[in-house]
């Protein structure tokens, strides 16, 4: 069942294969020019992809300056490895693979660094004060989504972020993560299910007035497939 996949481009998906705005030179030609020593061609590639790359990296690292540094690092690595790039394949997914790997590596390193701090003896173990307001009430939707996403294992979370937050198609995610499309779809289904479960549990723990209202949630009751 899972292999009965949607092959056409999803609505609203920004395809990495789409021609550049204004009908400019294709990625393949620019790559060829860069290989011949044309720096300006690489500048064109950078300008073509930097916005989306920054956006993707921001989803992982949540720090604008850091995302900027990582995106710069990504382009440098791309430049260094351009000789290894197979021109018969798509440039965009290859670039995003390098960028996503950099972002994930950074997050793993940071997690390893933070882990001992979280469990160090110096950390104050003060129980929450029932009289004070729940700090979660100050979190907005974005922070709450981030919190829920962090509860999901990385290999599911990455697919969910790329598909549902960054709008990449399943085939593009498969190319970026170097996995079969069926694997990506399976992970996506699992990630959505887990996100929904954690989100629902979090909202149930909150008082009704603290729950985050999502537009369209109320009409959802009648909007499902009954007809």
């Amino acid at each position: 069942m899972i292999n009965r996949i949607r092959t056409m481009s999803e609505p609203g998906t920004q395809s990495l294969e789409s021609p550049p705005p204004g009908g400019g030179v294709s990625d393949a030609r620019l790559v060829e020019a860069v290989r011949k020593g044309d720096h300006d061609a690489f500048g064109e590639l950078v300008k073509r992809y930097e916005g989306r790359l920054m956006s993707v990296l921001l989803r992982f690292v949540r720090d604008r300056e850091l995302a900027r540094d990582l995106s710069q690092e990504t382009f440098l690595r791309v430049y260094e490895r351009l000789e290894q790039f197979d021109p018969s394949r798509r440039f965009g997914p290859w670039l995003f693979r390098i960028g996503v790997n950099l972002g994930l590596d950074y997050m793993r390193r940071r997690k390893r660094r933070l882990w001992p701090l979280l469990f160090s003896e110096s950390r104050s173990e003060t129980p929450p004060d029932p009289a004070s307001a729940d700090p979660r009430t100050q979190l907005d939707l974005e922070q709450e989504v981030r919190f829920v996403l962090e509860q999901i294992p990385e290999h599911y979370r990455t697919v969910l972020v790329l598909r549902d937050l960054e709008n990449f198609s399943s085939s593009e995610i498969a190319a970026i993560l170097n996995r079969k499309e069926a694997t990506i779809r399976w992970r996506l289904a699992e990630a959505r299910t887990r996100f929904e479960q954690i989100w629902r549990r979090r909202q149930a723990e909150r008082s009704p007035e603290d729950r985050i209202a999502v537009p369209g949630d109320s009409e959802e009751e009648t909007d499902h497939v009954d007809e």
Binding site: L58, L141, E142, N167, R192, E196, R200, P215
Partner: peptide
């Protein structure tokens, strides 16, 4: 229905950030 709720949360997060 639950899955659609979760999906709407994600859609809203997509339009809000970054």
């Amino acid at each position: 229905q639950s899955l659609r709720s979760g999906q709407q949360v994600l859609q809203q997060a997509r339009t809000q950030s970054p």
